[in-house]
Amino acid sequence: MNNLLLQQTWFFPNVNWSTMWEATLETIYMASISLVLTFVFGILLGLLLFLTDTGNLWENKGIQTVTAAFVNIFRSVPFIILIVLLIPFTTFIVGSFLGPSAALPALIIGASPFYARLVEIALREIDKGVIEAAKSMGASNRQIIFKVLLPESLPALVSGITVTAIALVSFTAMAGVIGAGGLGDLAYRHGFQRSREDVTLMATIIVLVIVFIIQFIGDRLTNKLDKR
């Protein structure tokens, strides 16, 4: 056991553990803040997409088309290009385009449309009969949204946010390349550019661990919520 530990330390000679830890915290910071906001914006956009569609509560062809176009455009732009395109916007909002906080606008704008589509799919899965039943009981649109649509689609919303969270972790790595910090930045600048493969490897392992943890929590939560 002791021997094994020694081998491991020998195996990552260039890893500065305190820098690695700092980078991990930056990645977690970027991913979690952007995840919370992506959840909020994604649900709002997804609801808008669903509700304005033909035959639904707020049927409105104009809003539907505009929202769908917005979502499709921002979902299609490659993330690395999106970051660059958003530099003026980021500078305006955050005051700088460097550092972990500066990555947030791009992360949120990149991930929200993606999650919005997942939300829309989740809402479409709800049996129309259940919505009709709620209407027949005199429910208002607000009550239908908060008491029927969101609770009934909750497992799908959670499994969707799990997928989105994992995408966000990989987005943060890309954001790192343009100076946002985090594990991607560390792996690229300290690992790749200085040919220290052990640093890249360690950063990758930590990213994988984060992804596994997210997937594990997401799966557990989805199963617990799903009463079908």
Partner: peptide, 14 residues
Amino acid sequence: IGMIFQHFNLLWSR
């Protein structure tokens, strides 16, 4: 006015 349905239309999350 109460209403019941062929496929029950219950909320499965409740």
